[in-house]
């Protein structure tokens, strides 16, 4: 199948998303915002929606679903994801806020050597859509101008070297900030998106959110939002779910001066699991990378 038919399908979805024509289900956020959606789009992607629509409960009878547990923005982005396979958080709304704190993150000049990042970030971007074989991965690349496109192109020995490169990168030298990091990090939002993906059984969303979270961290690891994000992660996902927890531990491990921040200190003290994770890392020896 060439790109064109795929693009056609995705354009169709985008159009449905924009017009909301034929919508047969309404999702409400707790602030009352109303999102007409299509059962045919939503249900196949999430068992949660599917069960609910078919159940004999109030929701099943009315066709109204209220996601009272989630931030209205999360609800909106969740639906955006279901149609567009991506979500773009509103940056301008918080840009002011972010700047008022001052951009204290690493101010090193942005490196543009795409290949290097590609190895680190490209992976999750692809796996988010089911790997290189997924029919959507290619379309995704052609459609998105801004985000992962450049990095998603795998280098030839991509799979073989990834694990090692990532590990060494983490241990031996500091991570360079990603050029994709936006001005406002929205770390907590990505964490919430991740939780939503988990709670409603949408694995693609989980991966995408994890990816976006990590990209932002490369630049905004110093953001005051980090503490909130940590709480979201540890409060709303089960401990067996490791990916986000590791991303947090990685960043705290790498930038030890974060530990001096009061809100981080509170978080570590409150969350036993995080303290343990950090302790474990500080004691871990990896002789195979020392030489």
């Amino acid at each position: 199948m060439g790109d064109k038919p795929r693009a056609e399908l995705l354009d169709g979805l985008r159009s449905l998303y924009q017009t909301r024509e034929y919508a047969d289900l309404v999702v409400f956020a707790r602030d009352g915002s109303r999102h007409p959606v299509h059962r045919a789009i939503v249900c196949p992607r999430s068992q949660y929606f599917s069960d609910q629509v078919q159940s004999k409960s109030r929701e099943g009878t009315d066709g109204h679903i209220t996601l009272s547990d989630d931030e209205p923005e999360v609800v909106q982005l969740l639906i955006e994801y279901l149609y567009l396979l991506d979500y773009e958080p509103n940056i301008s709304a918080v840009a002011e806020d972010a700047s008022s704190h001052g951009d204290s993150s690493d101010t090193m000049s942005v490196r543009t050597e795409g290949g290097q990042y590609g190895q680190v970030y490209g992976t999750s971007a692809i796996s988010a859509f089911g790997g290189p074989q997924s029919p959507f991965s290619q379309v995704y690349r052609t459609r998105t101008e801004s985000s992962l496109t450049v990095h998603a192109i795998p280098t030839s020995d991509f799979h073989g070297t990834f694990g090692r490169t990532a590990n060494r990168g983490r241990k031996t030298h500091r991570q360079d900030p990603s050029p994709l990091a936006t001005t406002a990090p929205r770390l907590a939002l990505h964490a919430r998106m991740y939780t939503a993906g988990h709670k409603y059984g949408i694995d693609g969303l989980k991966t995408l959110a994890l990816d976006k979270f990590k990209i932002q961290l490369t630049r905004h690891w110093d953001s005051p939002e980090l503490a909130e994000a940590i709480h979201v992660i540890y409060d709303t996902t089960p401990s067996a779910d490791k990916d986000m927890r590791e991303a947090v531990a990685d960043v705290l491990d790498m930038h030890s001066r974060l530990l001096d921040k009061p809100e981080i200190e509170v978080a570590i003290m409150e969350i036993n699991g995080l303290a343990y994770e950090l302790l474990r890392r500080s004691k871990r020896i990896e002789p195979e990378y020392m030489g």
Partner: peptide, 21 residues
């Protein structure tokens, strides 16, 4: 009498319980 119940509410509650181990 299921039709009076909110699926979302029950799901949310069950999720929380499981989340808290």
């Amino acid at each position: 009498n299921a039709s009076a119940l909110s699926f979302e509410e029950l799901y949310r509650n069950a999720y929380k319980i499981v989340l808290k181990k």
